[in-house]
């Protein structure tokens, strides 16, 4: 396991950012999900050693997050969320500079900088000063600097934020290529659920500093079944009884009722309750729950 942390606690003053988070993550692309303020960026920053733990322990690529931060940073790439660059440098110098700071020999760093920029599609503008880059180009440049030293693990913090649809697709293509074909583990923090669903097979969901869910996306989706219903008659009693049975209900604008049933729920119950409440079931389909449903379920929002 390349990322293993246990009982991580961290507070910004009185505000608890992480409260006893434990993770044991497999290889591959991992999505780190959560609403704003859930603790995603804090967790990444702790793993990089930017922030010191209040309590807990962990190992990244086998290195202790408390005592071996330099080793971790040597083998980990980090693409920050914010726009960040070093002014007055062109993209090649910028990327090679950061390669050198990772410990690469100067000439090797320069060679790799060209390769990394070529890989992310910035070869045409690699001699342009980075402050003249557009938002999409800056995102690519941030990815280039994260891979210049050939890391074994990359932390990507909101890699598609502020991108137009085409830029977003291209960055996601790169991420998928890196994680699936290059044998580099990727941890993507995002609140854009389709991005995570597209690139990752495993997901960690944080909410208010707590671990809300983690696991294979496909398996997590199976935990709660989703049924789509249309009913006729007095719905109040029917809905109340479903809620009493721990079902989560969502009503769409077109009158479709989405019912997330708890594990082990027998679907015959729908018909029994409908009969009891004198309600007609006009439409009944077992549907496929999405990552959005899973996320909403985990963080407790509609």
């Amino acid at each position: 396991m390349s990322i293993k942390v246990s009982d991580i606690h961290f507070s910004y003053g009185k505000i608890k950012a992480l409260d006893g988070v434990s993770l044991d993550l497999p290889q591959g692309a991992i999505g780190l999900l959560g609403p704003n303020g859930a603790g995603k960026s804090t967790l990444i920053r702790i793993m990089l050693g930017f922030l010191s733990l209040d309590r807990g322990e962990g190992r990244i690529l086998g290195y202790d997050i408390k005592t071996q931060q330099e080793e971790i940073r040597r083998y980990v790439g980090y693409m920050p969320e914010d726009d960040c660059f070093i002014p007055e440098l062109d993209a090649v110098s910028f990327t090679s500079y950061l390669g050198e700071l990772s410990g690469m020999p100067r000439q090797e760093a320069m060679k790799r900088a060209h390769e990394a920029l070529y890989y992310v599609g910035l070869e045409e503008s690699r001699y342009r000063k980075v402050e003249t880059y557009s938002g999409g180009m800056k995102q690519r440049l941030k990815l280039a600097q994260a891979i210049v030293h050939d890391p074994r693990l990359i932390f990507l913090d909101e890699p598609t934020s502020g991108l137009d649809p085409q830029g977003r697709t291209e960055i996601l293509d790169l991420i998928m290529d890196i994680s699936r074909k290059k044998d580099i583990q990727v941890l993507i923090s995002s609140h854009i659920l389709p991005d995570i669903e597209l690139t990752c097979s495993y997901v960690v969901i944080l909410n208010k500093g707590l671990l809300a869910a983690q696991g294979e996306i496909s398996k997590l989706k199976e935990i709660r079944d989703l049924y789509e219903l249309k009913i006729k008659g007095e719905a109040q009693g029917f809905l109340r009884k479903l809620e009493e049975m721990k079902c989560r209900l969502e009503e769409t604008e077109d009158g479709l009722l989405k019912v997330y049933t708890p594990p082990g729920y027998n679907r015959q119950e729908f018909f029994r309750i409908a009969a009891e409440e004198n309600v007609q079931l006009r439409h009944f389909i077992k549907s496929q729950s999405s990552l959005e449903d899973l996320f909403a379920d985990a963080v407790g929002v509609d």
């Binding site: 940073r73 914010d82 070093i86 990772s102």
Partner: peptide
């Protein structure tokens, strides 16, 4: 004058400290 202020302005401190630098 720009040694640290530029790094603060352009958020580049995180780039330095995500490298094996103390």
């Amino acid at each position: 004058s720009g040694l640290i202020s530029d790094d603060l302005k352009h958020n580049s401190l995180q780039l330095y400290f995500s490298r094996p630098l103390k």
